[in-house]
Nucleic acid binder design. Structure first.
Lengths: 124, 124
DNA sequence: GAAAAGATGCTTATGAATATCAAGAAACAG
DNA sequence: CTGTTTCTTGATATTCATAAGCATCTTTTC
């Protein structure tokens, strides 16, 4: 329940203060290594999970890939995954239809949309 | 490249001829066990992958869950995941906006949409 | 049928994510 | 400050989903 101030936790938080794009746990680890060379991956996972719980971060699940994490304070948006260069782009605005026409009784709390294709750099 | 007729492969194909909903590899294994008691999970994975390659099946990736598989001949649709009972419902029609307003150069090949919330049976 | 080409099933390997636990570091009391 | 308590860390082991390796068994082909 408490929340201690540790340098590893700060380092991980700091990474997301500079970076917007969704990062994988390993990418977080690599970046944090610059500051804390012997940081363990388990600590990264723990920090990420905690931060998701406290809604500092949001989990980004792209089809067929393992989880990435992005700041929770970003404006609502969706993602574009380029299958050629494997990069993920943030897309402004919501791409969901307004009139969903769901059957009675379904209550939507969240939605995920991922577009897949090729980005401007990988046209073809 | 060739494609042999084996009873295990037929059994797996037969399951999907009766069932529409997305099934996990383990669910496929369980159902197939009724017909082929000593079927191995590896064979299920191989069959599912082959069937995805030949476009008999489609992989369904819901956020935070492992892959499920559904028939590829189903009309384009999306999925609703109830977080209470954990069931997955097919939703008719496409829920993507028509005017995506993407930056120039992005070419969309596919899109995935998952709605999350509670279903009629789990209202609350 | 018998040989050749593949598929199966078991076991082992890989990769992501979590659990375990001793040792280290913050918070707290004095 | 300094000791005590309690949480966090890091290394390792574990779990789970999936793929790979390989000897054996089945289809296909002749």
């Amino acid at each position: 329940m408490p929340q201690r101030h540790t340098k590893q936790r700060s380092a991980i938080e700091h990474i997301f203060s500079r970076i917007e794009g969704p990062l994988s746990p390993n990418e977080v680890l690599e970046r944090a290594h610059e500051e804390i060379p012997n940081l363990g991956i388990a600590t990264v996972y723990r920090a990420l999970n905690d931060m998701v719980d406290e809604e500092t971060l949001r989990r980004v699940d792209l089809p067929g890939q393992s989880s990435r994490y992005e700041r929770a304070d970003l404006k609502h948006h969706h993602h574009f995954h380029c299958t050629k260069c494997d990069r993920v782009f943030d897309l402004d605005g919501c791409l969901l239809k307004h009139d969903l026409g769901l059957p009675k009784g379904f209550v939507v709390k969240e939605h995920d949309i991922t577009l897949t294709g090729s980005c401007p750099d990988c046209k073809g």
